[in-house]
Amino acid sequence: MGSEFVSLSLPPMLIGIFAAIACALPGNFLVLRKQALIGDAISHVVLPGIVVAFLFTGTVTTWPMMIGAAVAALVAVILIEAIQRLGKIEPGAAMGVVFTSMFAAGVLLLERSDTSSVHLDVEHALMGNLESLIWLDAFGWSSLLDPEALAGLPPELPRIFIAMVGVIAFIWIFWRPLKISTFDEGFAQVMGMQTGALGLALVAISAVAAVAAFDAVGSIIVIAMFICPPAAARLMTNRLGRQVGWSVVFAILSAVFGYVFAGYGPMWFGGQDSVSAAGMIATVSGVILALAALFGPARGGSQA
């Protein structure tokens, strides 16, 4: 059990947990700022970015894809802003125009280019391949201390870990300005804060989290983790600090239980094969949100 767990289940579970935390942290502020759907938009436009990066380089390697996805996210944010201002269109509709069109362009590019030799398709982009991120060099818990075995870890694991650390650092450093500008933008401006730049930085750090997570876990988890844990946490407390704490707890619970249910759940019902871990993690986060909406102590209250 031990060695099998370390090589087959530990890495994907850790990747799921890190991805969930990296997305849930900025999600707290997006939910409070009523920008929750930015996460939705970003995760859609990542696809054309990755496809274009593939067309340029001809290979599925990490850095070009990350850069492509980041550029696509940036283009989308600029386009949304431009359409909103030029056409005096409400933000939701402007977002809808941009992310659907860019996603459509991504799908079309994908269909028109020869990607049969590489692992790149729409389903992969949606669901990720969490289950396949296994650690073949591990032989039990002792491998965690063995540098040779550690070198064989799936590369997604250190990548998402670094992204998570980056997100945590951003939130920790800008905690006060983020908090003030989220709750009272006018006051923050009077205090001399660059609220515009801060808002953009928040979107940028969300994009970083989304792109890093997308690679490993697909876009469903990204959207679910941006919104569900923070939304559930918001129904638990009136204090921002506690809300962020709750959201991290919910994110970890979703990732762990989602992965376990997906891997072992079908066996309890007599099935043989596992189901999509990404889908199950999203489902569990939804169940947590539903419970919070039913029983959360701060579910209906106004701001304290």
Binding site: I223, I227, C228, A231, R234, A278, T283, G286, L289
Partner: peptide, 17 residues
């Protein structure tokens, strides 16, 4: 917006399952 995002991701995730 949070409600929309939550519903679309959770339902879609369950659909994938």
């Amino acid at each position: 917006d949070s409600a929309i995002g939550a519903v679309l991701s959770v339902f879609f995730g369950f659909g994938i399952v």
